[in-house]
Design a protein around this nucleic acid. Structure first.
Lengths: 256, 256
DNA sequence: TCGGCTTGTTCCGCACAGAGGAATTCTAAA
DNA sequence: TTTAGAATTCCTCTGTGCGGAACAAGCCGA
């Protein structure tokens, strides 16, 4: 969730908040919804009717309204927010350790979405990209995640024809390269002068669902730093994985 | 999607329509969104900003907006609509064959959602319940679907404590009973005087994702009709499964 | 590199659409 | 059957949502 827009639309905000409430808290009645939103019952009813109209809600036999098929499955939005909360102190520690900005990202289709970013203290640094989407095959974390996918899984994300500027064959070449190197690296692919190293989050035997990266100006990257960076990434990934397992969390791969 | 509400809210409608567009058609820019909605660019931008604010959209590095984590996965809403379209003629044929109302439903958590209904021509009949949610363990189609789930899968939908009027132990008892009988039947469980027979849709080796039922007044149900009804349901389920496989569709179990 | 064009973003005035109070309808329990 | 609570419908009015215009950012070709 971002900052409130400069010119927000209250009616739309109420509707979207209500959709999220249904998703996260389960079925509720009109009166419940009105109280939760701080609006009149008639307003709540109108909002619910709009949500039903556009498949964001359905009404049960008991007259309560539940989340509809347009929304993500019940309870599964939270993992992204929880992932951000759990990962942020670990990202902070990673930045302190290596002195470069760090990112956490999840795979969404053929792209990665930046979930969290912690910036380093250098004046010249990679800035906050939280919330943004990048092509997965270009980003270091995206490459780390793609390298963990089967050929079928890659096929389900990339068509035969070049789309979004890349063919499946090219993605497969990048995956093979990443696997061969044992490291996911992006040198200038997403932005000239930027180098990033990626590492998946998710222990052995588990599908990696998120990835870490450290990103820096190419001027500060030297291949002799690679062992240090990869070790720091691996340690941080393991720590995040432990944190997530400790709360019996489900990882956002299940968003897909 | 239902009929347009009596007192609809245009601003909310625009926002929800835009969310569905992002979901179904992939990333787009402000100008595209404005054209698709028939609004000014500044209005489209405000709507997109609200969607981003509430996690229904994210903005990519190329400035386009894509669907956000609060929405169901890309392209997966449509299967419900397509399932309805594909199944409706088959439901019609089923109703013609057995002379009773027929439903198609999908499992959503611990409930089933009615996807499509075709009513029979008797004056006393089970009416249209399309769009409604019912407790899965009570509905015949829900029972048919639950009987196809593993113990773990049932555990993920029902907690230990009695919630929504049922405990997991009770659900497991119903599942065992359904499996023993080889038929999923609801006599008066969802409504007094109503009897329904359910049957899963999904061929051998595939997880049943939807279910059919025929539903009638108990006054018209006789256990000697059971072979006829189950045969008609099995034939119809197989036909729908073929129709779905023919278009290489994915079934709505993947909504979950 | 620069300029022109396109697209995204911000601002503000105004009129009509969204909110809410009240009336009506529905539902479940006693 | 009655009653109370909740859902739904209706309608008035004011403040909010829309869109035009200005501004900012990005892209591409010369």
């Amino acid at each position: 969730m971002r900052n409130k827009p400069t010119y927000s639309i209250e009616s739309v905000d109420h509707a979207l908040r209500l959709a999220v409430l249904l998703q996260q808290e389960g079925p509720m009645g009109v009166t419940d919804a009105a109280e939760r939103l701080g609006v009149a019952r008639s307003t709540a009813h109108r909002l619910l009717s709009m949500l039903v109209y556009r498949d964001f809600a359905v009404q049960g036999a008991d007259r309560r309204y539940a989340s509809g098929p347009a929304l993500g499955p019940l309870g599964r939005v939270e993992p992204v927010a929880r992932l951000r909360t759990i990962a942020r102190p670990r990202l902070r520690a990673l930045v302190d350790r290596v002195g470069e900005s760090a990112n956490l990202m999840v795979l969404r289709g053929a792209q990665v979405q930046m979930v969290a970013t912690v910036e380093c203290e250098h004046v010249l640094r990679v800035g906050d990209r939280e919330g943004r989407l990048l092509p997965a095959h270009l980003a270091s974390g995206g490459r780390a995640l793609l390298a963990g996918l089967s050929r079928d899984e890659i096929a389900s994300r990339y068509s035969d024809e070049a789309a979004d500027g890349v063919s499946r064959a090219e993605v497969e070449r990048i995956v093979r390269q990443t696997r061969r190197r044992g490291v996911a690296i992006n040198q200038g692919a997403t932005e000239t002068g930027l180098t990033a190293i990626g590492h998946p989050v998710g222990g052995p035997g588990r599908t990696p669902a998120a990835a870490l990266s450290v990103a820096m100006p190419t001027a500060r990257y030297d291949r002799h730093r690679l062992p240090e960076l990869t070790a720091a990434l691996a340690d941080t990934a393991a720590a995040i994985d432990r944190d997530l397992s400790g709360v019996a969390g489900r990882l956002p791969t299940e968003l897909e």
